[in-house]
C-alpha cells in the first residue's frame, strides 16, 4: 500500500551550486537521488511531495563539499504480508505466474493456485479451470494476497497466493475479446 512519510537525508552539494538558487539545486538533486529508489525499510520512493526543512550545512574537510540534512515528505509504496493487491499478470509458466502491482513484482507458485486450475502450454501459456470458465494468462488482472516478501537494497520481491476465498481473476482480457 501507499504511504505518506517524512524521511531525512544528508545531501552533499558542490560549492559551485552555492548562491541564490541553492535551495532549488538541493531539491532537484534530492529528486534525482531519491525518486525511483527502493529501500528495504520504506519500500519504493515514488515521488517527493514536499521539503519540510533544510538544516545548516556542514563543510566536509578536504573536499569543500557541504552536507545539508534535508527533511522531506514523500509517497512510498510498500507491500506487506497479508495485504490484498490487484495485480496484472506479466508471465505464465508451469511453475506459476508473475504479476506486477505498481513497481512491485509478485510470484504466485502453482501450489498457490487453486487445484482445479491446470497449466496449459502453447504460445499463450495459461492456467485454466477444467470447465474453461476461468483463465489466467498474460495481462489478466488478478486479486492476490501477499504471503511473503523479500527485500534487498534495490528491489522488493513478493510471493502471493490466489488460493483463498475471494481471490483470483477479476478481469480476463481473453474472455472479453
Amino acid at each position: 500500500m501507499f504511504f505518506h512519510i517524512v524521511l531525512e537525508r544528508n545531501m552533499q552539494l558542490h560549492p559551485r551550486h552555492f548562491g541564490p538558487h541553492l535551495r532549488d539545486k538541493l531539491v532537484s538533486k534530492l529528486m534525482k537521488d531519491v525518486e525511483g529508489t527502493c529501500s528495504g525499510r520504506h519500500g519504493f520512493v515514488v515521488a517527493i511531495t514536499g521539503v519540510e526543512e533544510i538544516g545548516k550545512g556542514l563543510i566536509r574537510e578536504g573536499t569543500g563539499f557541504v552536507t545539508f540534512p534535508v527533511k522531506y515528505q514523500c509517497v512510498v509504496f510498500r507491500p506487506f504480508k497479508g495485504e490484498i493487491l490487484e495485480a496484472v499478470v506479466t508471465m505464465v509458466n508451469k511453475m506459476g505466474f508473475f504479476a506486477e502491482a505498481g513497481p512491485v513484482q509478485i510470484f504466485v507458485s502453482n501450489h498457490l493456485i487453486p487445484d482445479d486450475m491446470e497449466f496449459q502450454s502453447g504460445d499463450m501459456p495459461n492456467y485454466t479451470t477444467s470447465d474453461g470458465s476461468v483463465k489466467i494468462q498474460k495481462d489478466s488482472e488478478v486479486r492476490l494476497k501477499i504471503i511473503g516478501t523479500r527485500v534487498d537494497a534495490t528491489e522488493i520481491f513478493c510471493i502471493g497466493t490466489i488460493k483463498d476465498d475471494f481471490l483470483g481473476v477479476i478481469n480476463d482480457p481473453g474472455a472479453a475479446s
Binding site: F2, G36, V46, A47, V75, F77, P103
Partner: peptide, 12 residues
Amino acid sequence: IPESFNKAFQYS
C-alpha cells in the same frame, strides 16, 4: 520521471 513513478501512478 523514473519508471517506478509511472508504474505506481498507473497502479493507483
